[in-house]
């Protein structure tokens, strides 16, 4: 049993920690709500573009365009890993990094792009070469942050540096469930045409190729944006659950320490009474 003062100061410091984890939980919950709304709001735009691309691909004569040709398994690949800028979010970063390392091992002909400070730090520590890293995006989430990444990737892809671009990220399922997802962004994967959708013959202006180019541009931008939103929502979700259990743990710890504190205090008082009583007894004799 420890010293009574030690226990008291421990209770105090745990109480402070609990306050912090609780506050972080609240903040994560608020940010999560924002990211979730972002995902819902991006849906009509993304769905429309996917639908248009599917339609055009179905109708198009330009099926040999680079964006439609599926890559060989050994083709040169750019892998984009989406991590968080901050820690304290459970297994969020470590799982996605593990998946990325596995991919790099299986596909040696791959270059790494990293989004998020945590991933950048860890890959550097592990001596994995990063072509480019993007950090500090998640503080201020707006659409323009995805444009820089998208334009870099487009540039690399269309200058034939890479044959395909894969992204590994955390997909948001629910607050307690996140899935690691690997997704091919370019070339455009086979898109399913929604049932009941008309496949009309359109007039193209200026020309089919220009329309496809513009659509592809928009498609990549919104795809990256969606991935960032998903990852951000997943990050806040894991942080929320991690901080929730941290707060619970702190409460449990405080409870058991308080019990211990009371026992030590009681013991001290009993000791004192025994001393006084035995002192008085001695004087009486």
């Amino acid at each position: 049993m420890g010293n009574i003062r030690d226990i008291k100061s421990r209770i105090g410091s745990i109480r402070n920690t609990r306050q912090i984890t609780n506050a972080m939980k609240m903040v994560a919950a608020a940010k999560l709500r924002k990211a979730q709304q972002g995902i819902i709001k991006a849906r009509p735009y993304a769905d429309n573009i996917n639908h248009m691309l599917a339609t055009i691909k179905f109708k198009s004569r330009e099926t040999d365009l680079k964006i439609f040709v599926q890559p060989e398994p050994t083709a040169k690949c750019a892998l984009v890993v989406v991590t968080a800028d901050r820690g304290l979010c459970g297994s969020f970063n470590s799982f996605v990094i593990k998946a990325a390392l596995q991919y790099l091992k299986d596909h040696p002909n791959t270059d790494l792009f990293c989004i998020g400070k945590k991933g950048t730090d860890i890959f550097k520590k592990k001596d994995v070469k990063i072509i480019k890293s993007y950090t500090g995006l998640f503080n201020e989430m707006n659409f323009s942050v995805s444009l820089d990444i998208a334009s870099d990737l487009k540039h690399h892809f269309f200058s034939n540096e890479y044959d395909h671009i894969e992204v590994i990220y955390n997909e948001f399922k629910s607050v307690i469930q996140q899935n690691i997802v690997q997704k091919q962004v370019l070339p455009i994967p086979d898109i399913k045409v929604l049932e009941g959708v008309s496949l009309l013959d359109y007039l193209y202006e200026p020309g089919e190729e220009e329309v496809i180019e513009e659509l592809t541009n928009k498609y990549i931008n919104v795809e990256i944006w969606r991935i960032l939103l998903e990852s951000s929502a997943a990050e806040q979700g894991t942080r929320m659950t991690a901080m929730d259990s941290a707060t619970d743990n702190a409460s449990d710890l405080i409870e058991s320490l308080t019990l211990q504190y009371n026992m030590v205090r009681q013991a001290a008082i009993t000791n004192e009474i025994i001393e006084i009583a035995s002192g008085a007894e001695a004087q009486n004799q």
Partner: peptide
């Protein structure tokens, strides 16, 4: 404002995509 010039759309326009 289309890429090849401004254009108008009225009721009954043919299916059409423009940049």
């Amino acid at each position: 404002p289309g890429k090849d010039g401004d254009f108008g759309v009225f009721y009954g326009h043919t299916p059409f995509i423009s940049v």
